[in-house]
Computed example of a mutant assay.
Amino acid sequence: MRPESEEALAGIVRAATGPLRVTGGGTRALGGPGPGAGPAEVLETGGLTGVVLYEPASLTLVAKAGTRLDTIEAVLAAERQRLAFEPPRMERLTGRASGPTGDPAGASTGTSTLGGVVAANAAGPRRIQAGAARDALLGVRFVDGRGQVIRNGGRVMKNVTGYDLVKLMAGSRGTLGVLTEVSFKLQPIPPAAATLILPDAGAGRAVAAMTAALGSPYDVTGAAYVPGTGTLIRVEGLEASVDYRAGRLAVDLAPLGVAVRESEPARVARLWRDIGEVAAFHDRPGAVWRVSCRPSEGAEVARRLGGEVVMDWGGGLVWALWPEGEDIRPRLAGLPGHATLVRGFGAPALPPEPEPVARLSRALKAQFDPRGLFAA
């Protein structure tokens, strides 16, 4: 089912008699229907496309949830603006990519959509400085499990009382309602950026370098480790400031390795897009796991896994390429955090929730989806 309007979508939900699986481009899909839920009918948001409002002067964007992420990025780039949280496009990693359709509204599946970014609370390397999708989200419109259209938030940041539905819907993965429209605060694209690349000396040295960089006063906007490439540290801003901060960081990090500086804009952008999209694991067989942990324990996660890993967020996000069919969670027992199966089979995609969190989740589900329509 692929409704072309919010009203049509609400009608579908009201008339539904069985479980529904909400999907945008299908590039961030995880999990499956709960036990006993039966097969779920797919409800696509790709018919809800287009920019509703864009005010560059006020750094505000409102768009329909099915609009392709690359369409939004092109619109913003024309005004030298961006989504600060740097949402990655995951189609190459998850193997759900599709070719271009020529549809300017962004209706095709297989490509990341704005609603999918919000539903997954996605964020790229800049999360360490700018936060995730929920931190830039101003407002949402969505259809709940009763088929009601609900609006929360607006076009400016403000405090709310009761449920903060803007924050609640970010990361809900389509289990509480179907997003139809989202609004974001934006960020100007800075005039300069530079990346320091330290030689690959292993995960432990990489975490030490990233920790030192993030603890510095130099406003680092990216800290990652890619085996074979090394440790990458990014700074952005005015050209003179970037030059000074990158120089100081290179001196401070010299005990951990001699850094090569990359300042050519297109190459810097490509480096960090590849990190956010985990390009090291593209087109390679095996399962892909996403481990969220304390940055200081990223090296320990890598040690316990012993396989190929990519680290982002200063060590707080570890991507692991792993043989199909094995659950890595027992290997990480005792470490705070959680592991999600992003691509592959043989284990539950999402980790079990602690019982206090599970109780809250059940209460929210009963409030927003009392008929249990939206497959978890």
Rank of each mutant, 00 (worst) to 15 (best):
P3L: 01
T17S: 15
A29G: 09
L30V: 10
T60P: 08
A65I: 07
T67Q: 04
T71S: 12
A77S: 14
L93V: 13
R96V: 14
S108Q: 14
T111A: 15
N121P: 10
N121W: 02
A122K: 01
P125E: 00
R127D: 04
R127E: 02
Q129D: 07
A133P: 10
A136K: 09
L137H: 10
Q148H: 14
K158C: 11
K158G: 12
V160M: 06
Y163G: 11
M169K: 11
R173I: 09
G177I: 04
T180C: 07
I189M: 08
A193P: 09
A194M: 03
A206V: 10
A209F: 02
L214M: 11
S216T: 04
P227E: 01
G230W: 01
E236W: 04
V251D: 13
P255K: 07
R261G: 04
R270F: 08
I275A: 12
E297A: 15
A302S: 13
G307K: 11
D312P: 09
G316W: 00
A320Q: 07
A333G: 12
P336Q: 03
T340F: 10
F345K: 15
F345Y: 14
A349L: 10
L350M: 14
E353L: 15
E355P: 13
R362S: 09
D369Q: 03
D369A: 03
P370K: 00
F374S: 00
